[in-house]
Simulated scan of single mutants.
Amino acid sequence: MAKEKGIHLGRPAIAYPPNWDEVYRQWESKQITAVAAMHRLGLKRSTFYKLVSQFRAKNIS
């Protein structure tokens, strides 16, 4: 019933941290490690790689 009404169920979508672009570029250019990037962004491993995947998919199109 909720799906028919267009209501989202489950966990809310994860927003990119404010410093995502800067830290992502540093990680991508190998200036920092993935662990350092996760610490700077305040993200867990799975969340970090999920956002990386979404970011790359969005920027390829």
Score class of each variant (00 low, 15 high):
Ala2Asp: 09
Glu4Gly: 05
Glu4Arg: 14
Gly6Ile: 11
Ile7Val: 15
His8Tyr: 10
His8Ile: 12
Leu9Phe: 08
Leu9Tyr: 12
Gly10Met: 07
Arg11Phe: 12
Arg11Thr: 09
Arg11Ser: 14
Pro12Asn: 07
Ala13Leu: 12
Ile14Leu: 15
Ile14Thr: 15
Ile14Met: 15
Ala15Asn: 11
Tyr16Trp: 01
Tyr16Lys: 04
Pro18Gly: 01
Asn19His: 06
Asn19Phe: 00
Trp20Arg: 00
Trp20Lys: 00
Asp21Ala: 10
Glu22Ser: 03
Glu22Gly: 00
Val23Ser: 06
Arg25Gly: 07
Gln26Glu: 14
Glu28Arg: 12
Glu28Leu: 04
Glu28Asn: 07
Ser29Gly: 01
Ser29Leu: 10
Ser29Met: 09
Ser29Asn: 14
Gln31Ala: 10
Ile32Asp: 02
Ala34Asp: 13
Val35Gly: 02
Ala36Asn: 07
Ala37His: 01
Ala37Val: 03
Met38Ile: 12
Arg40Asn: 10
Arg40Val: 00
Leu41Ala: 03
Gly42Ser: 08
Gly42Glu: 05
Gly42Asn: 08
Leu43Glu: 08
Leu43Ala: 03
Leu43Trp: 07
Leu43Tyr: 13
Arg45Ser: 10
Arg45Gly: 01
Arg45Leu: 00
Ser46Leu: 15
Ser46His: 08
Thr47Asp: 15
Thr47Met: 08
Phe48Lys: 11
Phe48Tyr: 14
Tyr49Ile: 02
Lys50Gly: 15
Leu51Ile: 11
Leu51Tyr: 14
Ser53His: 09
Gln54Ile: 12
Gln54Val: 12
Gln54Cys: 11
Phe55Asp: 13
Phe55Ser: 05
Arg56Thr: 02
Arg56Glu: 15
Arg56Lys: 15
Arg56Asn: 14
